[in-house]
Design a protein around this nucleic acid. Structure first.
Length: 666
DNA sequence: TCGCCTCGAGTTCC
DNA sequence: CTCGAGGCGA
């Protein structure tokens, strides 16, 4: 605590030091020790003191970050040493070829050591320190000339305004200004609330924030900075890149993380490992790795081509975003009749696959995007899997407005929209499209698990009128199947055997398979614990609501199903067909070591499927959930884990590797 | 009543 | 994976 009676001078210095310490812990160590509110209070106190004692003002006081002055209008700044960009490569062969060129150009007997850093997806900046004080900050621009953003860079808490003793006389430091995903989301929420267009990605947001007219806005954006190189270092210049990074840290400058490797094979292996196990935990966008020859003498020897240094290479992950044109919009009909608009786009390569179809979810989404047929759109693979349209980048001159269909695209029945709901629905209960989806769901793995009954088999069976509801599956004959193009002798036998085997599936699976509105895998499971089939046929809404997670709406839906003629008939016919619908056995291991624990699995596990892992957790008395929240005990991350890792990091939920999870099993 | 936590439903590509 | 929406505790 600061002494109350200290001289204003001493108190000022103490306050400044304390705030610098908090800045350092917040951005450099990522371990703040005070809340934002406490920090703001300290800052307010500092500003009050400085206002009362103008004679004690200091240009490098942390209070200068929030001066409220107007930024210089981004005058052009010529870089003392051009800021060249590195050559890009997207595949291993190019990286190996580059490694060979490096080795060939080094003197005989010398081998390179490679230093590998994350390539942060932000914007490059050059910070000039003279006599340890920050005098200028400039964007990269075209590499020769950038823009003066000094006033705004002063607002970035990760950028020290003053370096400690021992700093080089003159330093032109280069690095990346960027933003974390969490801060980006916060900014976008605020922007949306203020009625502004949200930023597309953290990079654009960081760029926009650094080029604000009003530095106070920059200050509110929580930009970060990591150093990755320098243009000028006068006085005690380091002799290698890793030495440079270490010196940065000594000077209190946040420096990029780095690994060193002697062989290119190790670099390539790291590239793969990094994406799955390091990147998701970083919390900010990285689009690849930068590989540099560590030793500066070797770097000088290798020199430059016309465009870029020979001693470095950016090894990039495939682009996650691409642009294409919306050629048309089609409407798909789901199992429950929900009509979903799907954009057909001109095929475009994105994140390793060619995308031609993108879901639009619903018509509100189309409204939000302001999308019309013919528009040019930005597409990304959300969580690297499901494509989605981020925004319209160029409007078509005469774009066709997308309107909800009046008739079901499959059966032509009228389309309805229920009050207060987003979705449009086909209300025909015998719509063939709905029947197809219902059968696919019935046969799916978590339901009746009839592997031979996939999309194409379902299509044919429905088209031929051989199956009109799920119970008809159990009266299919071999002759009927052989009549279809899809089935030869063996395949028909297989399907019939699978259908036969499905008859002993437990009640929870059957309930899920029936496709009762509001009843999925989990609800089916809890229902099957409490009721048998007859119990369900007789249960009142109140009876049903006594089950946890079943409220009035779900109860009504279940009761309506079992009270309806179709529901009763379906249950009777399934029973007659020989379905046992037995209660699932609860096999909880004695002692239930996972009792009270909730696990979330993400990514691909190697020694079991996700379902098997969840099965194990439940058998040990734990719960398996699909989404990460503060109630989650552990996230288990396999290969190629996605956004759940980020969420876990944000909420401070412990993340286990598959190995660690296996060690917890008895 | 609100806000958090889950669940259900729909979807992509190979 | 993401969105909408139901359930339930604070």
């Amino acid at each position: 605590m600061r002494p109350r009676k200290a001289s204003p001078e001493a108190e000022l210095e103490a306050l400044r030091a304390e705030i610098r310490g908090h800045d350092r812990r917040y951005y450099l160590l990522d371990a703040p020790t005070v809340s934002d509110a406490e920090y703001d209070a300290l800052m307010a106190r500092l500003k009050g003191l400085e206002a009362a004692h103008p004679e004690l003002a200091s240009a490098d006081s942390p209070s200068r970050r929030v001066s409220g002055g107007v930024a210089s209008d981004f005058k052009p700044v010529r870089h003392a040493v051009p800021m060249l960009s590195l050559d890009n490569s997207y595949d291993e062969a190019d990286v190996r070829a580059w490694d060979e060129r490096v080795r060939k150009n080094l003197p005989p007997g010398q081998s390179p050591v490679y230093l590998v850093e994350p390539k942060i997806d932000g914007l490059s900046c050059a910070l000039t320190y003279e006599g340890g004080a920050l005098v200028r900050a400039a964007t990269r621009g075209d590499g020769e000339t950038g823009e003066d953003v000094t006033a705004n860079a002063r607002q970035v808490r990760a950028i020290p305004l003053r370096l400690p003793d021992g700093a080089p006389k003159r330093l032109e430091l280069r690095g990346e200004v960027y933003m974390t995903f969490a801060d980006f989301e916060k900014v976008n929420e605020d922007e949306k609330r203020a009625g502004h267009e949200p930023f597309v990605n953290p990079r654009n947001c960081a760029a926009g924030s650094l080029r604000q007219k009003d530095p106070r806005i920059t200050a509110s954006r929580r930009l970060r900075f990591l150093a990755h190189s320098y243009g000028v270092w006068e006085g005690g210049e380091p002799s290698s890149h890793h030495e440079f990074l270490a010196r940065c840290r000594d000077l209190g400058l946040p420096a990029n993380r780095a690994e060193r490797f002697a062989e290119i094979d190790a670099v390539i292996a790291y590239f793969a490992r990094f994406k799955d196990s390091v990147m998701p935990g970083l919390g900010f966008a990285v689009d690849g790795l930068v590989i540099k020859v560590d030793d500066f003498a070797q770097q000088r020897r290798l020199g430059f081509t016309a465009k870029s240094p020979r001693w470095g290479l950016a090894f990039k992950y495939p682009a996650q975003q691409a642009t294409s044109t919306v050629a048309s919009v089609e409407f798909s009909v789901g199992r429950t009749g929900t009509i979903t608009p799907v954009a057909k786009v001109k095929p475009v390569f994105c994140a390793g696959v060619t995308i031609s179809s993108v879901t639009l979810h619903n018509f509100e989404e189309i409204g939000r995007l302001g999308l019309k047929v013919g528009d040019r759109v930005l597409i990304e693979r959300a969580g690297e899997v499901i494509p989605k349209i981020v925004k319209v980048v160029e409007r078509a001159k005469r774009g066709k407005t997308i309107v909800p269909p009046e008739a079901c695209p499959d059966c032509g029945s009228p389309v309805i929209k229920e009050e207060g709901r987003v979705a449009y629905r086909c209300d025909n209960p015998s719509c063939p499209a709905q029947l197809r989806r219902t059968l696919e769901h019935f046969a799916s793995r978590p339901a009746m698990d009839i592997a031979g009954l996939g999309d194409s088999a379902v299509d044919q069976l429905v088209a031929r009128g051989m199956v009109k509801d799920v119970a008809d599956v159990y009266s299919l004959t071999k002759e009927q199947l052989l009549d279809l193009e899809l089935f030869a002798d063996k395949k028909a036998d297989n399907l019939l055997a699978q259908i036969e085997a499905s008859k002993t599936k437990t009640l929870d699976r059957v309930l899920n398979a029936l496709g009762i509105r509001q009843v999925g895998e989990k609800t089916a499971e809890t229902l099957a614990e409490r009721f048998d089939v007859d119990g369900l046929l007789n249960a009142s809404e109140e009876d049903l609501q006594s089950v946890s997670d079943v409220g009035p709406i779900v109860a009504k839906s279940i009761a309506a199903f079992f009270a309806s003629g179709t529901g009763k008939r379906l249950v009777r016919r399934l029973r007659d067909a020989g379905l046992t619908m037995a209660k699932p056995e609860k096999k909880v291991v004695a002692g239930a070591p996972f009792a009270g624990k909730t696990f979330v699995f993400t990514g691909e596990l190697s020694s079991f499927t996700r379902e098997e892992a969840e099965e194990r957790v439940k058998a040990l008395g734990g719960k398996a959930s699909g989404s990460v929240s503060s109630k989650t005990s552990y996230v288990v991350a396999g290969e190629a884990a996605g956004s759940k890792l980020r969420k876990a990091a944000e909420l401070g939920v412990p993340v286990l590797t598959e190995e660690q999870f296996k060690e917890m099993l008895p």
